[in-house]
Each structure stands twice: as C-alpha cells, then as structure tokens.
C-alpha cells in the first residue's frame, strides 16, 4: 500500500508539468507527464484535473460533485486491496474496523425498532443521491436504501440481488435482544465495523439514511411481524425471476 500518494502531490506534479487543462479545450499531448505517474496518480489526475467528470455540478446534500469523488481513508485502502486481488491482512482489517466503529452515532435514548412497513419501502427504493444527467429530487421523493439491489429479504419477492447474502428470516434466527439491536444498527450505520472493506454502503456514516430510517429498516429485518420473517407463500411464477 505504498501507492497512496495524496491528491495534493498529484496536483503538484501535474502543475509542474504544465498540465492544467480546461474541460472544453483539447488537452495537450500528455505523453511525458502520464507515463511518469503511477497508475493511481494518473487516475487521480484524470478524475480531478483532466476534465473526466462534471465536478462543478451541485448535489442533493449541498456539496459539489467534486466532493463526491474525494476518497476517505476507508475508500482508498479498500480500493487498493480490491485492485491488488489480495486478502485483507489482519492489521489493516483491524484498522478499518476501528475507523468504522468511531463513526457510529447511536440514537438518543438507545436503539428501538421502528415501523417495518416504512422499512420495507426504504428497502425497496433505489431512489436518491444520483446526480448527472438526471438528478434525484429529494424534496419530491425520500431516498431509499436499495437493500433489494443486493439482498434477498421477503421470501416472496423474486427480483432481489445477490451481491450480499440473503437476509430472509433475519429476525427469526436472531431475535430482538438489545445486543442484537445494537449489532444490527452498527451494520447498517457502518458495516465495515464487522466486515472491513465490505461492498455494503455505509448508510449511517454517509447520512444517506437517517437514524429514524435505519430503525425502520431494522424493524423490517427483525420484527417478527415483518414479511422478512414469514414463510414463503405459494405464488405464481416464482421462476419468472429473471423475466426482467
């Protein structure tokens, strides 16, 4: 992991080489400069300095698109590990977990289950935080958590993703003890606490789901009444899953 040259260094190198370009003008022949950078340095340069993205656009959270592209430590380290194809070593894993643990903010008065019906809507919705050619409008529609993109939940839902493990029967297997509530809250807030360099988004840490939304989704996972914890009912066309 000696590739973590900071963006600042890259900018400096690029400036030295006289490479500052505008998004519209054709960039000058880049050969000498590009080949003297490491792949990571060049990637950072292409993102931030060479007109690769519309960085000036505004976002829903009032920041600019540029800020979306700036990596935090966890993103940087995990990107490098993924790219190397190597297993995460124990020391780094411990560091990532510790960093994640530090981010967690519990609701005042402790974690309690919210409303599983609202949680279901959040789990199903992939709306929110998209920018660019079509910008999600949070004033007209509340952002969701997009859990179904990656997880099976309700056993009767056939259009579920498999990037993450199946969460069907999640509460049935685990119960609703305080320890379980805290544990699940931490997973949703920042899953790197237990799964360093996981592919699961950090919903609480990024504020893409509010504390209240997190407890609603938790109810969807853990409430004994939630469809997630019921048996499969016979429905027509279960094999139609891939029809769309």
């Amino acid at each position: 992991m000696n590739h973590h040259t900071s963006t600042v260094t890259v900018f400096a190198a690029a400036a030295l080489l006289g490479l500052t370009t505008s998004a519209t003008a054709a960039p000058p022949a880049p050969q000498a400069a590009y080949t003297s950078m490491s792949p990571e340095e060049l990637a950072e340069y292409l993102v931030f300095e060479a007109g690769g993205f519309d960085l000036d656009a505004t976002t829903q959270d009032g920041s600019t698109a540029l800020e979306r592209m700036i990596q935090d430590r966890t993103q940087k380290v995990c990107s490098a590990i993924n790219r190397s194809g190597e297993e995460l070593d124990r020391a780094t894993a411990a560091k990532i977990s510790a960093l994640a643990e530090e981010t967690i903010v519990f609701p005042e008065g402790g974690v309690a289950l919210g409303d599983w019906k609202r949680g279901e809507a959040i789990a199903r919705s992939g709306y929110g935080f998209r920018i660019g050619h079509r910008v999600d409008d949070h004033a007209s529609r509340t952002p969701g958590g997009n859990c179904y993109a990656c997880h099976q939940l309700d056993p009767n839902e056939i259009a579920y993703g498999t990037v993450g493990p199946s969460l069907t029967g999640y509460g049935r297997l685990r119960g609703t003890s305080d320890a379980m509530l805290n544990h699940t809250y931490k997973i949703l807030y920042n899953a790197h606490t237990f799964f360093p360099c996981t592919n699961m988004p950090r919903f609480g840490h990024h504020g893409t789901l509010t504390q209240e939304q997190l407890t609603d989704v938790m109810a969807y996972l853990l409430d004994p009444e939630s469809p997630v914890n019921q048996e499969v009912t016979e429905t027509a066309g279960n094999e139609q899953a891939s029809a769309d």
Partner: peptide, 27 residues
C-alpha cells in the same frame, strides 16, 4: 485504478458489481 476506485455516498466502485460471476443487482 479507476475501475476499482471507490467513492461517493454509496462507496461504490465498478468492481463492487462487476468482479463476480452470476451475481445479480435486483433481477
């Protein structure tokens, strides 16, 4: 490096979704 570069509010990189065989996003 760009393909593996995680960033943004969902921590996604292209690799999140395109480095396994047979995985699905929804259907």
């Amino acid at each position: 490096a760009l393909f593996y570069r995680r960033a943004g509010t969902s921590d996604f990189s292209c690799a999140t979704c395109h480095t396994n065989t047979g995985n699905r996003i929804r259907a």
